[in-house]
Amino acid sequence: MTDFDAPTSLWTKVLTVEASLWMGRVHLLGQQTFILIGWYAAVAPDGTPDPLPLIGLCTFLFFGFVALQILNDVKDVEGDRITAPYLPLPSGLLSVRTAARLAVAYMGVGLLALLLTLPHLFWVVVILATTGAAAGILVAYSKLKGQGVLASAIITVAFALPLLWAWFVAGGGDPIVLVTLVFYTQVTYFSGNIIAALHDVDLDERAGNTTFPVRVGAPRAFRFMVGVAGVGWLLVPVIALLGPYGMWALPFIVPGLALLAVSYRRMLRTLQVPDRGRLRRIDDLGPMKVSDQFRNAAVLAVFAPWVALVAFAVIQAIAWSGHYLYMWRIVRGGLVRSLAQETGAGLPGPDR
């Protein structure tokens, strides 16, 4: 395992940082869509505020998300030895101390972005305070995983924060729009949390995680999750009526619903097959996640059509290319081999 303070080469430190960024799931940028929704919903249709705070918010969300994901992996390292032993901590690629210190450093970078871009220190304090609350919710979630849908409901509270930050920093707007968008966000992340739990359904019980899919079975949990996602789809036309460019949601609604319709039965069949493993489950449920991202882009298009198109294209390009890099560097051990070659110390073992 590597320690950032150890007398190692610069390239070894670069590889250590790379490992920590993969821990932060840097290729998954879907949460940025909600910053954009909150911002453009507040300024649409003719507001043109300074875009610098938006850039700062997106930067903070990126590094803050990385930091919280790392801390989540630190907290769940023992369970990950069973469900995802290839991750940097259980594989011994990083020490817990190094990972935690890098998480603090990433949060510091995000804080610097806020200080340089937000118009008032008040917003920096509010965002940091609510981020701390989100970290507390994350800890509570890990202790309540066995409570089924209650745990999923608890964790979704934290995911409304980026939308709220952007909305209020941009100046706010119609409270009916805000309430509708917050409810949409909760529905989206509620179903998304169940998707994430389905990835580990084969091994979670062995790791002591009695999640909702473990409690009720993967097929039943999937049907319930699709029903929740359906509520999200029903909210899209409601939001379209509240925004200035409602018709622009259609180019995203049609392919999103079509993808869900054509892949539903196949996804359900694979969930009826036991012991497929985490990586196959992630691939199996990929169409569901892309369908959700089409839906999120549809909501953004109601307020900023061209921003929705560009954001969707960029997020998808990074997600797909990042997925293959992640498989190569983390799952198949490319980063472990690079580090072993650089240090000449052989392949690292588990951090026990």
Rank of each mutant, 00 (worst) to 15 (best):
M1L: 12
T8C: 12
T8E: 15
S9L: 05
S9R: 05
L10N: 08
L15Y: 13
V17D: 01
S20R: 07
S20Y: 02
G24V: 11
G30N: 14
Q32F: 08
W39F: 02
Y40M: 04
Y40L: 04
A41N: 09
P45Y: 01
G47N: 01
D50F: 00
D50R: 01
L54T: 07
I55W: 09
C58W: 00
L61A: 12
F63T: 07
V66G: 01
L68W: 04
Q69W: 00
Q69R: 02
L71F: 00
G79Q: 02
T83H: 05
L93E: 07
V96G: 01
A103R: 03
Y106W: 06
M107D: 10
V109R: 03
G110M: 10
L116I: 06
L116W: 11
L118N: 07
L118Y: 04
L121E: 09
V126I: 12
A129R: 04
T131Y: 01
A133C: 06
A134N: 12
A135M: 06
G136L: 01
S142R: 09
S142D: 01
L144Q: 14
L144I: 04
K145R: 09
S152G: 15
A153D: 06
A153N: 06
T156A: 14
F159G: 13
L161E: 07
L163G: 10
G172E: 00
G173I: 03
D174H: 00
P175D: 08
T180M: 15
L181K: 10
F183Q: 04
Y184Q: 15
T188D: 14
Y189A: 06
I194F: 12
I195C: 15
A196Y: 12
A197R: 13
L203E: 14
T211D: 06
P213V: 09
G217T: 08
R220Q: 10
R223I: 10
R223W: 03
M225D: 15
V228L: 05
A229F: 13
G230T: 11
V236R: 13
V238P: 08
I239E: 11
G243I: 05
G243A: 12
G243R: 10
P244E: 00
Y245A: 13
P251Y: 02
F252D: 01
I253A: 08
L257G: 13
L260K: 07
Y264Q: 08
Y264W: 14
R266C: 03
M267T: 04
L271Y: 09
Q272C: 14
R276S: 13
R278L: 15
D283K: 15
D284G: 10
D284W: 04
D284T: 12
D284Q: 02
L285G: 05
V290P: 11
V290E: 11
V290D: 12
S291W: 10
Q293D: 07
L300K: 07
F303T: 00
F303K: 00
L309R: 00
F312D: 00
V314G: 01
Q316K: 09
Q316P: 04
A317I: 09
I318V: 14
I318E: 03
S321Y: 05
G322N: 05
Y324T: 08
Y326G: 02
M327H: 11
I330T: 08
G333A: 07
G333Q: 03
G334N: 02
L335A: 04
L335T: 02
V336Q: 06
V336M: 11
S338D: 15
S338P: 06
S338M: 11
Q341H: 11
T343V: 03
A345H: 14
P348S: 04
P350I: 12
R352M: 11
